[in-house]
């Protein structure tokens, strides 16, 4: 209760400072007032086109995250299990990790032009190294004594994978989702802005083209709100999974 109240006070102080700045600058093109922004935000919320754009962005985020989990986890598991493979793939992973998002953006623009696949691919490439390296770290932290026990009792590989590997890696998988989700949102928005054909990023791009600063603020607010909602929903899911698997 106390924490909630403090957060509310924080938000109110932030809005007051924003209002103060808008009044001092008196230039809606740079800083529109909170009233103007929120008014527009609620109007946009009721517009089907905006909601569709929000859903398109959220869908791309989830798709990038899903692809990363689908490919990154097995890859990380295999690389983590075989030391030579880790040594071989590490430079490639490092290169992918170090390539700036704008370079991927340029390549995607050259290859495909503006489309929905570009932002997904860029987000996928920017979070894939995190997923692989975190999974590798999970595999390396695995309790070797449990594996030895399983080997001694000649437990089938399927059960070892299910009961020991998955259970041990679960906290790492949750960490990957936590870290990747926020990053995926930011990257998708930037990618939509620069090479997308739909979504909130494109809406922000359009608003900027028409020098409609309040709309830029309102769409940003919507993106933040959707980001928070998605994160909460996914956290609820991972929390349940975690409790199901590791209840104590």
């Amino acid at each position: 209760m106390k924490t909630g109240l403090r957060s509310l006070v924080g938000i109110i102080v932030f809005i007051l400072l924003w209002q103060l700045l808008a009044v001092i600058l008196d230039k809606s093109i740079i800083v529109p007032t909170p009233g103007e922004t929120f008014g527009l935000f609620f109007r946009l919320l009721l517009s089907p086109a905006t909601l569709l754009a929000g859903l398109q962005t959220a869908w791309k985020v989830l798709m990038a995250l899903g692809l990363v989990l689908l490919l990154g986890l097995p890859l990380g598991l295999i690389i983590g299990l075989f030391e030579p493979l880790y040594d071989m793939s590490r430079p490639i992973i490092m290169v992918i990790q170090a390539v700036p998002v704008i370079s991927w953006l340029s390549l995607v623009l050259f290859t495909w032009g503006r489309n929905w696949q570009g932002p997904v691919l860029i987000a996928f490439l920017s979070i894939l190294p995190i997923a692989i390296l975190t999974t590798v770290s999970g595999v390396r932290n695995l309790d070797k004594k449990l594996l030895e026990m399983a080997r001694l009792y000649q437990v089938p590989a399927r059960k070892i994978m299910h009961d020991i590997y998955f259970g041990s890696l679960l906290p790492f998988i949750i960490a990957i989702i936590d870290v990747s989700l926020g990053q995926a949102w930011k990257v998708i928005l930037v990618a939509e802005y620069l090479c997308g054909d739909s979504g909130l990023g494109l809406k922000i791009f359009d608003a900027r083209s028409f020098v409609d600063t309040p709309s830029v603020y309102a769409y940003t607010l919507l993106a933040v709100l959707l980001g928070i909602i998605t994160e909460r929903l996914i956290k609820m899911g991972t929390g349940r999974l975690s409790k199901l698997w590791v209840p104590v």
């Binding site: 004594k145 009961d163 020991i164 259970g167």
Partner: peptide
């Protein structure tokens, strides 16, 4: 056909007693 009682229990922490036993047989 051997059973090995380790010095430390080596039980799977996220599995119940029953599941730990099912794991081997």
């Amino acid at each position: 056909q051997m059973g090995f009682v380790f010095q430390e229990p080596r039980l799977i922490p996220w599995r119940t007693v029953e599941d730990n036993l099912l794991f081997v047989n």
